[in-house]
Design a protein around this nucleic acid. Structure first.
Length: 678
DNA sequence: GGGCCCTGTCATAGG
DNA sequence: ACCCTATGACAGGGC
């Protein structure tokens, strides 16, 4: 599958899912999330819970407390999985020419439609963060604000407003991620210093500017703005997160060009104010931004343009392209049976005719709305929200995505402050078990990014090149979930009436790809593989725990994984040993039985030989005795006499009565001797 | 539905 | 005291 998955691999599917959630009104309460310090993690919880059998009763489908590995891992040590880097890449990747545009579409929609208060789930949210702190205040800073806000609300503000506050607040130069917005303001100071001073100043004004935003609305700053626009601005400012689809349309259509550019490109560091700026700055990232921008703008046009849209700069040149992304999405959403594994979605796209292209963005969005809800319904109908059936809608489980669930495991590369365990945007779950559903893992982040490649973003380094980052983002994709996932998905879609057993077996097969501990480790974003954790020498293990900045929850999980892993191996060895013992005992029994039979046969043969010898001896006696004569010349009766051989070789004819008496005496003597010896 | 088998996990003992 | 290993017991899932 060529769409949606790889670049924010674990977030892409989620983001798209959250689009559905947002459109379905299932997004969480922003205030609650902010209070609880939740970031992107609970969204995944929501997704999973949303698909659970009985989430309907819960307007806010949060998992009930309790259970293993409950979510909201407190990050007692103040370190949290760092989504900023990943999302920053995602934002930057928007400028990449090879970004699947539908992803951006979804992300754009998601940021608003999902009502994401963090401003981290969509570019609109990012733009909102930028707008809150000053839209043009350095695109990177804006994106970082949004990213930081979304990255970890525990340490960074959750809402765009808070992000702006954090942006304005002085940050410790040595502080790690928590102050993502602050770091953004610092690390990207140079960027911001390159221009856009007015926007930067506005952003640096931080809280005051944000606080003034509402006042400015009330004061009729935009007198021409109607009520929806005011609401949209409130949303941008993070004060109103309950945008409906209509509000989204209004917002999108009402945004001035710069704002929209800020939404799409302004978050890209080199595109703070306009596309032209980004073009001028393209050398900085070694990216063909003209193409990238073209794609990005096309996204907006595909998604957002209205017939009377004023910010349409090159309609003629973009009309054809602008519709394609959405058409892809549209086609995708309306043709779920076409979601065959390993197929490029575009291959199934109907030819884009002029009639199709003539539809308005509103129509497209309406179609999107309908299609999304259709997908929601179809997904919920197939199973109790089988994430694997959803994953193809948002993810790219085939190998083309390339993010390997086992690809990281490079513990040595996960260290410094710039490197980060940054796939954590989807973060800890309230239910690690369910969270770690393999299919959803494949869709929303079941992978360990190799930190040195994926997560290492040195914002202050000139050596950073966007294309390099893009390569990391787009080309390091080797999923642990292989093609079996889409195959099964395809089967599931093609034959929904298949026995549940098949599905369960399939699920089990996919589960085998990731053990429970592996899923748990992924859920907590432990930067080590289970194999490493289990088989690492104790010294290395302890040094690892002390060297890396791990939360107590992570440490606990790592120790549990190690204990369970070792015990599992021990149990396997024990059973194998026990089985070997049993098999050996069985072999021994067989051998002994065979030996017993052999001895029996030998005994029988011996007895037979003895009997033959006895018979021969008897015949010999009779023959000899028949030839003997007594003193009177009479033949000796064999029944009364017998032969006795003496030690000197002489043979005597002895009456049997005497032999028996002597024999008894000899026997008694021998018995006495044996008794005296004992 | 019950039984069997396999596997993972836990608790515990011992080295 | 800590870690590792071994093993009995239990539970869950598949057949």
């Amino acid at each position: 599958m060529k769409f949606l998955k790889p670049w924010w691999s674990d977030g892409g599917g989620l983001l798209h899912l959250t689009v559905l959630l947002g459109l379905a009104g299932l997004h969480r309460d922003p205030g609650r999330d902010r209070d609880r310090g939740r970031d992107l993690y609970p969204l995944r919880d929501e997704l999973l819970l949303w698909g659970r059998p009985s989430p309907a009763s819960a307007p806010s489908p949060f998992p009930a407390p309790g259970g293993w590995g409950r979510a909201d891992p407190p990050h007692p040590k103040g370190r949290e999985p760092e989504p900023a880097g990943r999302l920053l890449r995602a934002v930057r990747a928007l400028g990449a020419p090879f970004i699947p545009r539908t992803r951006v579409d979804a992300w754009l929609v998601h940021g608003v439609a999902a009502g994401d208060p963090d401003g981290a789930h969509g570019l609109l949210g990012a733009a909102a963060a930028s707008a809150a702190g000053g839209v043009g205040a350095g695109a990177d800073g804006g994106s970082q604000a949004a990213l930081g806000g979304g990255g970890d609300p525990r340490a960074a503000p959750s809402s765009p407003l808070a992000a702006g506050e954090e942006e304005a607040a002085p940050a410790e130069p040595t502080a790690r991620v928590p102050d993502a917005g602050g770091r953004a303001s610092q690390e990207n100071g140079a960027l911001r210093a390159t221009g856009h001073s007015s926007q930067q100043e506005e952003k640096e004004q931080g809280v005051s500017a944000q606080d003034n935003s509402l006042q400015q609305q009330d004061e009729g700053e935009a007198e021409a703005a109607d009520a929806p626009e005011s609401r949209n601005e409130r949303y941008i400012n993070g004060t109103d997160t309950s945008l409906s689809l209509e509000d989204l349309l209004q917002l999108l259509s009402s945004q001035p060009e710069n704002s929209l550019e800020g939404i799409s490109l302004g978050d890209i560091p080199l595109l703070p104010g306009s596309i032209n700026d980004g073009l001028n700055s393209s050398a900085y990232y070694n990216v063909n931004f003209s193409q990238a921008i073209s794609h990005d703008v096309n996204l907006h046009e595909a998604m957002l343009l209205c017939p009377d849209n004023a910010f349409r700069r090159d309609p003629a040149g973009r009309t054809s392209q602008s519709q394609e992304p959405f058409l892809q999405l549209h086609s995708h959403t309306t043709n779920p049976p076409q979601l065959l594994p390993g197929t490029n979605l575009t291959a199934f796209l109907p030819p884009v005719d002029h009639q199709t292209r003539s539809v308005t963005s509103h129509d497209l969005l309406c179609d999107l709305d309908i299609n999304i809800f259709d997908e929601i319904n179809s997904m919920s109908l197939v199973t109790d929200f089988n994430p694997m059936e959803v994953s193809p809608l948002f993810g790219e489980p085939d190998s083309d995505s390339g993010l390997s669930l086992n690809s990281s495991h490079n513990s040595t590369s996960v260290t410094n402050s710039n490197s980060c365990v940054c796939d954590s945007a989807i973060g800890s779950s309230s239910d690690l078990e369910s969270l770690s559903h393999p299919a959803l893992e494949g869709a929303v982040g079941g992978y360990y990014p190799e930190p040195s490649k994926i997560c290492h973003i040195d914002l202050s380094s000139d050596s950073f090149h966007g294309d390099l980052a893009f390569q990391h983002i787009f080309h390091n994709h080797t999923y642990h979930l292989q093609s079996s996932v889409p195959e099964a998905i395809s089967e599931s879609f093609s034959w929904p009436g298949k026995p549940q057993k098949m599905k369960s077996r399939y699920l089990n097969d996919t589960d085998r790809n990731l053990s429970r501990d592996e899923r748990r480790a992924q859920a907590l974003h432990i930067p080590f593989s289970v194999d490493e954790i289990v088989h690492m020498p104790v010294d290395s293990f302890n040094s690892m725990l002390s060297r890396y900045y791990l939360t107590d929850l992570q440490v606990s999980l790592i120790r549990d994984i190690r204990r369970r892993g070792k015990n599992k191996v021990a149990a396997q060895n024990c059973r194998k040993r026990k089985l070997d013992i049993i098999l050996n005992l069985e072999d021994d029994v067989c051998n002994l039985q065979a030996k017993k039979e052999t001895l029996k046969s030998e005994r029988a043969q011996c007895n037979k030989a003895i009997n033959i010898m006895k018979k021969k001896l008897h015949n010999l006696y009779r023959d000899i005795l028949s030839r003997l004569r007594d003193d009177e010349g009479r033949p000796v009766n064999p029944n009364q006499y017998t032969l006795q051989c003496s030690q000197d070789g002489s043979v005597l004819v002895v009456p049997k009565e005497l032999m028996t008496s002597n024999y008894k005496k000899e026997a008694q003597k021998g018995k006495r001797k044996s008794e005296t010896r004992n």
